[in-house]
Computed example of a mutant assay.
Amino acid sequence: MASDAVVQVQGRRLKLTNLDKVLYPEVGFTKAEVLDYYTRIAPVLLPHVAGRPMTLRRYPNGVDGKSFFEKNAPSHAPEWVRTVRVGTPGSSRGAEYADFVVVEDLATLVWLANLAALELHVPQWSVGARGARHSPDLVVFDLDPGEPATVVECCRVACRVREVLEADGLSPVVKTSGSKGLQVYAAVSVSSPERTSEYARGVAQRLAGESPDEVVWRMAKAQRTGKVLIDWSQNNPAKTTVAPYSLRARARPSVSTPVTWEEVESCREVEDLVFLADEVRERVGSVGDLFGVGKAVRLSR
Rank of each mutant, 00 (worst) to 15 (best):
G226A: 07
L229D: 10
V157W: 08
E210N: 00
L46E: 05
E265I: 03
F29D: 09
R248C: 05
Y37T: 02
V139D: 07
L35Q: 07
R93S: 13
E265R: 15
T257W: 03
V173Y: 01
S177F: 12
V287E: 10
P148V: 14
V274K: 14
V127C: 13
V102F: 05
V122N: 03
E279T: 09
P244V: 12
V255L: 04
S254K: 11
A107N: 11
R12E: 15
L106F: 07
L276A: 02
L143G: 11
R283V: 03
G294D: 06
A277V: 12
C159L: 15
S135W: 02
A243T: 07
R58H: 03
R218N: 14
T240I: 10
R85S: 12
R250M: 13
D272G: 10
G65R: 10
G169Q: 06
G209K: 04
Y59W: 15
D20W: 04
E279S: 06
P145R: 00
N18D: 15
R13F: 00
V216R: 01
S179F: 05
M1L: 10
Q223V: 11
E163Q: 14
G294A: 04
E271I: 04
E198P: 00
T17P: 00
V215S: 10
S179P: 02
L56H: 06
G90E: 12
I41H: 02
